[in-house]
């Protein structure tokens, strides 16, 4: 029998294929950042988050907010795999009348809580949900995923202050630190370091991990869950385009979909992995 980690590896390998297939079918979209985030999303949706695709299902419901909305293909892949909607929809990504918009658009997609994509708003939204959960004396948790380039948005730091000020220990934010953004390398475009010191100075507990190592991801999520009196940041070192050799660490694949040839090559690599 497969252990939890092997199971998650297998799921994320297949979700990577879903992501590439849907992006190829769409002909446009954000490949690199979807692949850098997918392992963390997989760990959340298939191991740690308490959730159900059935609307109004009883039992606790943890929330996930994809603040880096351009990583939508990764979110759609986990939602389809979780049963929020039929997998056939993945091939309609970005097309007219599809339930899957280019960036998360909550009115049309089951399982998407809010609209994101204009960067920097998701952490504030996560805080709001966390405040409501605390008022309800609920133990439900909120997970938020931000990009590293996204933290150049001033609102992120407003939200960072808010989460610490209101002691939102039910908020766990992931920083998908793949080091690249559309115009190039993050540190060249607008440096965000020192990352850990900044977040700690803002009152957060920081857990630094390899964002593709399931053991480390699960361990950090569990530690964040036990952290009291302050929010937690899981600072995840990741690789943009992770899992497909010719996409890894390539700025070009930030906002580009794979061609037919690239898709075939990528599928062969993932099948062999």
């Amino acid at each position: 029998m497969m252990n939890d980690i092997d199971k998650l590896k297998e799921i994320s390998r297949n979700l990577r294929k879903d992501i590439l297939r849907m992006l190829h079918a769409a002909g446009s979209g954000h490949t690199g950042g979807s692949l850098s985030a997918i392992d963390m999303l997989t760990a959340l949706y298939f191991s740690r988050m308490r959730h159900s695709p059935t609307p109004g299902a009883s039992g606790p419901r943890d929330r996930f907010i994809l603040s880096k909305g351009h990583g939508a293909p990764a979110l759609y892949a986990v939602l389809a795999q979780s049963g929020y909607f039929d997998k056939k929809h993945l091939m309609t990504l970005r097309k007219v009348k599809s339930i899957l918009s280019g960036h998360p658009y909550s009115p049309s997609t089951p399982g998407v809580e809010v609209c994101t994509g204009s960067l920097g708003q998701g952490l504030s939204i996560s805080n709001g949900i966390a405040m409501a959960l605390k008022l309800n004396k609920s133990d439900e948790r909120v997970f938020c995923m931000m990009g590293d380039g996204e933290t150049q948005e001033g609102q992120v730091w407003e939200a960072a202050m808010t989460a610490a000020h209101y002691k939102l220990d039910n908020v766990t934010a992931f920083l998908d630190n793949n080091g690249l953004q559309i115009d190039g390398v993050v540190k060249d475009v607008m440096g965000i370091e020192p990352i850990g010191d900044k977040w700690r100075a803002f009152g957060w507990e920081v857990y630094e991990i390899d964002g593709h190592d399931f053991g480390q991801i699960l361990d950090a999520v569990d530690k964040a869950g036990r952290t009291k009196g302050k929010p937690s940041l899981i600072w995840a070192h990741t690789v943009k385009g992770k899992g497909v050799s010719f996409m890894e660490n390539k700025v070009a694949f930030h906002g580009k979909a794979p061609s037919r040839e690239e898709l075939d090559l990528a599928m062969a690599e993932l099948d062999a992995a």
Binding site: Q121, I125, G128, A132
Partner: peptide
């Protein structure tokens, strides 16, 4: 605090819950 952008998105989160 003096953070209107954060306030509005936080309100959206409260509404989402």
């Amino acid at each position: 605090g003096v953070a209107e952008q954060d306030m509005v998105s936080t309100a959206a989160g409260l509404a989402a819950a």
